[in-house]
Amino acid sequence: MNSRIFLLSFSFITLTALTAFAPADHNFRSYKKRPAKKAYRLTKKTNPYYIVISKKDYELNVYDEEGWYATYPIVFGSKDLSDKMREGDRRTPNGSFKIVLKKIHNKWGPELLLDYPNDESYRRFKERKEKGLIPATAKIGDGIAIHATRPEEEWTVDNFYNWTDGCISLKYTEMKDLYSYITVGTNVTINP
């Protein structure tokens, strides 16, 4: 078999295998944004945006005072999309959070750090320990963020490939857009 046919066959098989894990309505995904009607002048007191993440839909939606503003396709850490139980389970936590830090990460660029664990996260964690759902020695974990893929790995989002340690990941190019207008203090709700 010549190398060109082998490479094409291998590429097709790899793409077929990766898309087998995608939801039935899978297609190559990119973000949608409402045309701008008015420019916001952001101050520390004014933040018109809030974020709602839907795990089941693999979407991050941004809303403002006028309603829906933008939708970005995303991926997570684990195929198990249930609530984060403890450190190391690679799950993304459910609940209400705030963005507490914007920074540029050395591997995947733009990053919005969430205030996980917050008081509600600690309450659920303690309750689960008391019920014996997690080991008494388990730790809650931290460092959950909304961040980009590496520039050459945007395909992970197109193929619903959950690769993080529990964070929410957007395509590199689309995360640069989100990062440009989301501020520290923005509310983030993560739904199952």
Rank of each mutant, 00 (worst) to 15 (best):
D158N: 15
I13M: 14
T43K: 08
S30I: 09
V75L: 05
Y58K: 01
A36V: 15
E127S: 11
I53R: 00
P110V: 03
M1C: 11
A17F: 14
K103W: 05
K171C: 05
R128H: 13
F10Q: 11
G141P: 01
E59V: 14
E154T: 09
Y50W: 15
D64P: 04
L112V: 02
E152G: 10
A39L: 13
R86G: 00
Y50R: 15
K32Y: 10
D57I: 01
L112K: 02
G143V: 03
F160W: 14
D165E: 14
I104Q: 11
K84F: 05
K102S: 04
T16G: 12
G185C: 10
L113D: 00
W163Q: 03
E87V: 03
S82Q: 10
K102A: 02
E120A: 15
E65H: 12
P151Q: 09
P48E: 08
I74G: 01
L7C: 11
K126V: 09
G95P: 03
D115L: 06
C167P: 00
T14A: 15
N2Q: 09
G185W: 06
W68S: 12
V184R: 07
G132K: 07
I190A: 02
G109Q: 01
L7P: 01
G77F: 02
E66H: 11
P48Y: 06
Y179G: 02
V75N: 04
K103G: 03
D158L: 02
N94D: 15
I168E: 00
S11N: 10
L18C: 12
K176E: 12
A20P: 00
F160K: 06
N191T: 13
S30A: 11
T16E: 11
I99C: 02
V62A: 04
D177F: 00
S54K: 06
N47V: 05
Y58M: 05
C167A: 05
K45V: 08
A70L: 06
T46W: 09
T189D: 12
Y122H: 14
D80H: 05
S169V: 09
V52N: 13
K84C: 05
K103D: 08
E87Q: 14
G143Y: 06
G109V: 02
K107V: 14
S82A: 10
N106L: 07
N2A: 07
S78W: 02
Y31T: 01
T156W: 09
V157H: 04
E120F: 05
L15D: 03
E66M: 10
G141E: 00
L7K: 15
Y31H: 14
I5A: 13
T149L: 05
V52R: 13
Y179Q: 01
E111H: 02
F125T: 01
L101Y: 09
Y181E: 05
K32V: 10
S82H: 08
G132F: 08
K176N: 06
T156I: 13
D165F: 09
G143C: 06
V52F: 06
E127Y: 08
